[in-house]
Computed example of a mutant assay.
Amino acid sequence: MGVLMLLSGVVAGIIALFGLFYKFWFLRDPLRLAPSGNNIISPADGKIIEIKEIHPDSKGDIKKGKGVIQTVYSDTILHGKSGYLITIFMTPFDVHYQRAPYDGKVVYSKHKKGQFRSAEKPRPQNENNQILIRTRLGNMKVIQVSGFIARRIVSFVKENQNIKKGQKIGMIRMGSQCCLIIPKMTHKMKAELKIKKGDRLKAGETIIMSLGK
């Protein structure tokens, strides 16, 4: 009887410690100040695992059997323009909030069903939430991607909502993956991509692309 009570106490203590750790570490929300100037910033904390240039003829449909799970690029890269798909891996120890990469208006926030595979590699076939933002630079999309552990995605925005650069737009519990699709700018914009594969990013602070005008 005494042993059972001792074990029960140990288990209860472990659960309580995990609850405190989850609340004060995993759900932490540090102050982030968006950099001034004309630039596009990171939507998520984490490490860049892929930077891919995409074109209007890129295959954005991810198929499973005969059914299309999602179309990634078709409503983002418009009018014959090209763009970039930046994939960020978030560990359980990263801050889990996502932020707006640029000022704009939310076109939609849509949940897409899919798989729950490990997010250490690009996983466009995983369950996700896609937030399409219309900006003066063109459409941008933030994709919150689930993983093997992280299966709860929350969006804080709704259709036709105006958002500011650096504003919190959602969260993924326990880490996972976040993708950003941005248009490729014209030479007149004097745009410069400021990141590379392997870089560590901070949501709302790290500059993804600087713009001269």
Rank of each mutant, 00 (worst) to 15 (best):
L4P: 05
L4A: 15
M5P: 00
L7T: 12
S8W: 12
S8R: 10
S8K: 13
V10A: 15
A12H: 08
A12Q: 03
A12G: 07
G13I: 07
I14M: 12
I14N: 03
I14C: 10
F18R: 07
G19K: 11
L20F: 14
F21C: 05
F21N: 11
Y22C: 08
F24M: 06
F24E: 09
W25D: 03
F26Y: 10
L27V: 07
D29T: 10
P30H: 13
G37S: 10
G37I: 10
I40W: 01
I41H: 00
P43D: 09
A44F: 03
A44V: 02
G46A: 06
E50H: 03
E50W: 01
K52A: 04
H55Y: 15
D57S: 12
I62Y: 05
K63Q: 10
G65P: 05
G67L: 13
V68L: 07
I69W: 10
I69R: 13
I69S: 06
V72S: 06
V72R: 05
Y73V: 05
I77P: 11
L78W: 09
H79C: 05
G80H: 13
G80R: 14
K81D: 12
S82V: 01
G83T: 06
G83E: 13
Y84Q: 06
I86S: 01
T87F: 07
M90S: 03
P92D: 06
F93G: 00
V95Q: 01
H96E: 00
Y97F: 14
A100D: 02
A100L: 00
A100M: 01
P101K: 07
Y102A: 08
D103K: 11
D103F: 06
S109M: 08
S109G: 08
K110P: 02
K110I: 13
K112N: 14
K113W: 14
R117D: 15
S118I: 15
E120Q: 15
K121F: 15
K121I: 15
R123D: 06
Q130D: 03
Q130P: 00
I133M: 06
T135A: 07
R136A: 11
G138T: 05
G138R: 10
M140S: 01
V142K: 04
V142C: 05
Q144G: 01
Q144P: 01
S146E: 02
F148A: 09
A150P: 03
R152N: 10
V154A: 05
V154F: 08
K158I: 03
E159D: 14
N162V: 11
I163E: 02
K164D: 07
K164E: 12
K164P: 03
G166D: 06
G166Q: 07
Q167V: 11
I169R: 02
I169T: 00
G170M: 03
M171L: 13
M171C: 04
R173T: 02
R173H: 10
R173Q: 11
M174Y: 15
G175Q: 14
S176F: 13
C178S: 13
C179A: 13
L180R: 03
I181Y: 03
P183T: 14
K184C: 02
M185Y: 04
T186V: 05
H187L: 11
M189K: 12
K190M: 08
A191Y: 01
L193C: 05
I195W: 07
I195C: 04
I195M: 02
K197Q: 12
D199M: 09
D199T: 04
R200W: 11
L201F: 14
K202A: 08
E205I: 11
L211H: 02
L211E: 03
K213A: 00
